[in-house]
Nucleic acid binder design. Structure first.
Lengths: 322, 322
DNA sequence: GCGATCTTTGCTCATATGAGCACGGTCATC
DNA sequence: GATGACCGTGCTCATATGAGCAAAGATCGC
């Protein structure tokens, strides 16, 4: 009986979803009452035979978002669909778009927004529409005066976000990582720099991304670190960098000495923040994403479907080892 | 305006399909009237953003079936879903199952059913349920006394189908292909053989498959042809075999000399039949499937989704060269 | 066998949804 | 600047669907 009911429910589903027949019509075709058809359909849905997918670059995955919020204890989660994604750039762009949308609809609107810099942040700044908010000031939370021709990006990201919101940007006029601890201390105690860091630590919200721990890092690209440096960090457990600081799977600083020479908001400030939005997408960043989420570095995560399911799986397994 | 409507329709679709909200609820969430939500949803569906798929081994693709019927001028078409298919065997099995289902529900029930033999037919015979019909006699339409140990298959397929329908099987006691024309003529004129061929040509319905033109053919496997023979046929345009006869893309016999030595129903009888059911699945058989369909060898085709779309594409392109 | 329990079935009623229509605003044209 | 065609909007009404319920049937232990 169960066997034949399953088959019937499939036949009913075909007629209902593919042929747009009414349950009553299906009833007369399959010689069933329309209530039976309704139950068959409900059964087919419950058994997962009916798969409904929304295919659109800006489609989100609300059920995944909810599970992500629940399993990882996030205040909010934005998960973009990966269906039909052709390459990594497409995925980045979709996620950045979603982050921009999230920012634009964020209530209450933060007066001061602390941001990091990098490819992702730059992407977000591009996707934000002019006038996405009014009077939002932007402040950089980690050093970013670039060492090479890629110069302006960090600055222009912040400026673009601020301008489009009719606010103004406060830049952190300092390198990301100094070679000597003394230099770092000196810069940090400079009044201009100290004031920015102060402002940064009092921001209403933070928006940042994370980098994978490999040679493709922006920190390598910008000349702050060599590929060898990164390889060394990886050997010591690094899974990626957050606002310029390399962390391990537990979200702890990998190299204290290096960290001391890094200018910017300490990770503790992110952990203590009421609203900190992490934007992390792509298979290469699964490990960092995990570190960021499990160590409480963000309250809101914007990511892609695959990363989200990866996190959910990991967190359900570790919490419920059945 | 159109841009924002599209985005809205996606948001609405997420809430409707993924969160099971009512259109009214969505209305209050997105600050819209419930009619607007309904229109947005309809628009999303019409634009193809909503994809509904039925995932089940026995799911069919009714819209594809209809298009296949229309573009290829078939009396009926059965198309099985390929979603979740793991290997070729799975696909074969699904198609055979569908063919078995089709046979079992066929009205009016044929009194005599002419069948070919091979892997597909054998598969179908296995999937038919005991008592799938009552009093259907089965007759072989092409020679099949096997030359090697794979002996019984051709016979047992026919017998199984007949037994399960409470009818009896008439076997064609002859090889598929003879080496010499004279031998073929002699066998054909044998009273026992001639009677079977006679019965075959008067069957109410035919059920047959087709083989791809390569060394994996059952005709090679059974020892009637060598891989070299097949390669030669391919060079002359063969795309596959139908009831033991090799045809080209237009459905014409490739090698008349070989064909004359082949025992069984001529292809013309299939073309003239009121009901002839072809069961052809798999990427390797796209070409034969096309030949069978375009040359009118079958009135009903049982196939898989990919083959079906392949055929549809080909036939719409060739008929409407825009 | 026989009754108790649980499932399945066909119903009534409330709700959700879609079709058709009148209104008001927009836009191009004269 | 007036006019008419057109589009998007919010409505009424008919229809489709789902929830809940009583009766019929199946299943089980005794």
């Amino acid at each position: 009986m169960i066997e034949s009911d399953e088959l019937l429910s499939i036949r009913a589903a075909e007629l209902y979803y593919e042929e747009d027949k009414t349950q009553d019509e299906i009833g007369s075709i399959l010689a069933l009452t329309r209530w039976k058809v309704g139950r068959l359909l409900a059964q087919a849905k419950a058994s997962g035979f009916i798969r409904i997918e929304i295919v659109h670059p800006r489609a989100r995955r609300l059920p995944v978002e909810r599970r992500l919020r629940e399993t990882c204890g996030l205040a909010d989660a934005i998960v973009v669909s990966t269906s039909g994604v052709e390459d990594q750039d497409e995925l980045q762009s979709r996620t950045a778009q979603a982050a921009a949308d999230y920012l634009a609809t964020l209530r209450p609107v933060p007066r001061t927004l602390g941001i990091s810099w990098g490819r992702t942040l730059d992407d977000i700044s591009r996707h934000l529409e002019d006038g996405w908010a009014t009077g939002v000031d932007v402040v950089q939370i980690n050093g970013g005066v670039s060492l090479n021709r890629r110069a302006g990006t960090a600055a222009s990201t912040a400026v673009a976000i601020a301008q489009k919101a009719g606010g103004h940007a406060t830049l952190l006029p300092s390198p990301a990582i100094l070679e000597r601890l003394e230099t770092k201390r000196a810069i940090e105690s400079d009044r201009a720099v100290a004031a920015v860091l102060d402002l940064a630590s009092s921001a209403d919200a933070y928006l940042f991304s994370a980098g994978a721990a490999d040679a493709s890092s922006v920190l390598v690209d910008s000349g702050y670190l060599t590929p060898d440096d990164v390889a060394g960090l990886v050997r010591r457990g690094a899974v990626g960098d957050v606002v310029g600081r390399y962390v391990d799977a537990a979200g702890a600083i990998v190299d204290e000495r290096l960290d001391e020479r890094t200018i910017g908001l300490p990770l503790e400030s992110l952990r203590a923040a009421g609203l900190s939005i992490a934007v992390i997408a792509g298979a290469a960043k699964h490990a960092v994403a995990d570190a960021v989420v499990s160590s409480g570095l963000c309250t809101v995560l914007v990511t892609d479907e695959e990363t989200a399911t990866h996190l959910i799986e990991k967190h359900t397994n570790s919490e419920d080892p059945s």
